[in-house]
Nucleic acid binder design. Structure first.
Length: 310
DNA sequence: GGTAGACCTGGACGC
DNA sequence: GCGTCCAGGTCTACC
């Protein structure tokens, strides 16, 4: 018999909207079920791995979390802490975002889904660089199948041979970078708490991210938003497509990138959210609300190349 | 400071 | 079934 717990949410919180707000909800070990509107995944807890299923009976209602085994009091607290990070439950800046960009007030969009840990977000971002989305899906699935069903921890990756990651997890040349990131975090040279600390400036965090292996300008800006720092737009080929197709920009890719950055300047500290929800809106207009996407069909094709072909 | 080329994988396409 | 091309950011070497 597993443990069942409840967690209060902010009054505006809507699980299906706020989980299905960023592509990581389609990546292992996360599994969103469109029929039951629940999120299931394994978590690495002090007493071992446990799978949890998270549901919500209605907008603003408490979350109902069911574990697949009995959880100690300490583990229940861990689950709540990890779920709070994943679902961004403690984000108090949604109202401020809606004041700056009123387009999303009605739908209530503002929170972006992320991982239970900074390290998982880091590796997921590296696994999304220079690769098409279906390969990112495979890398995440294989990392969970081969190393840990709750997603590899820094310690686990630090111990792995690069060749294993390449051959069995299909991460390609990212093997070395992932093991290095594991070693840096496991060895304490990179402290997740420092990156999470709101006392450190966006500029300092961005610079520190750029110094990490496998993290360039796009990845650093993306990890920034996953940290709840939305002052930078993460520019990639998708930004160029958006600039051309939706914002009517013209010129070379480099020129469009600059125009996109300039376009979102007025949104100040909320630039990324304004940019991202425009993109997300574009996907949803083509494929319906993200909470209805099936992981193995729509969920495999929702980015740039596949969309522009349609 | 800017840029060319290498780095891998998987899918699309032509034969 | 096989070979070729292409998409996708980061890193290094070089100018």
């Amino acid at each position: 018999m597993g443990t069942r717990l409840t967690m209060p949410t902010p009054g505006d919180y809507l699980l299906r909207r706020d989980v299905c707000s960023y592509g990581y909800f389609l990546l292992a070990p996360n599994h969103w079920d469109p029929r039951t509107e629940t999120l299931t995944r394994s978590l690495d807890l002090s007493g071992g791995i446990a799978a949890v299923r998270i549901g919500q009976p209605g907008r603003g209602k408490a979350l109902v979390i069911e574990g697949d085994r009995r959880l100690s009091r300490g583990e229940q607290a861990e689950v709540k802490r990890l779920v709070t990070r994943m679902l961004h439950l403690n984000d108090v800046s949604v109202g401020a975002f809606h004041k700056v960009d009123g387009r999303w007030k009605k739908s209530g969009r503002g929170r972006l889904f992320r991982s239970p840990t900074f390290f998982e977000d880091l590796i997921k971002t590296v696994a999304s660089c220079n690769v098409t989305w279906p390969s990112t899906i495979v890398m995440n699935r294989r990392l969970c199948e081969v190393i840990s069903p709750a997603f590899p921890s820094a310690q686990q990756l630090a111990r792995r041979r690069e060749a294993t990651l390449r051959a069995r997890c299909r991460v390609g040349y990212r093997d070395k970078r992932m093991v290095e990131l594991g070693k840096l975090v496991a060895g304490g040279e990179v402290e997740p708490a420092w990156f999470e600390d709101r006392g450190n400036s966006d500029e300092a965090v961005y610079k520190a991210l750029l110094a990490l292996p496998g993290i360039g300008p796009y990845a650093a800006a993306n990890v920034m938003q996953l940290l709840g720092r939305y002052s930078r737009v993460a520019i990639d080929t998708e930004s160029v497509r958006h600039g051309k197709a939706v914002l009517g920009m013209t010129g070379t890719a480099k020129q469009i990138e600059k125009q996109v950055v300039a376009h979102f300047e007025p949104f100040g500290e909320h630039r990324f959210r304004s940019y991202w929800f425009e993109l997300w809106d574009f996907y949803e207009k083509k494929h319906g609300p993200a909470w209805t996407w099936e992981r193995d069909s729509t969920g495999k094709m929702f980015t740039a190349a596949s969309l522009t072909k349609e």
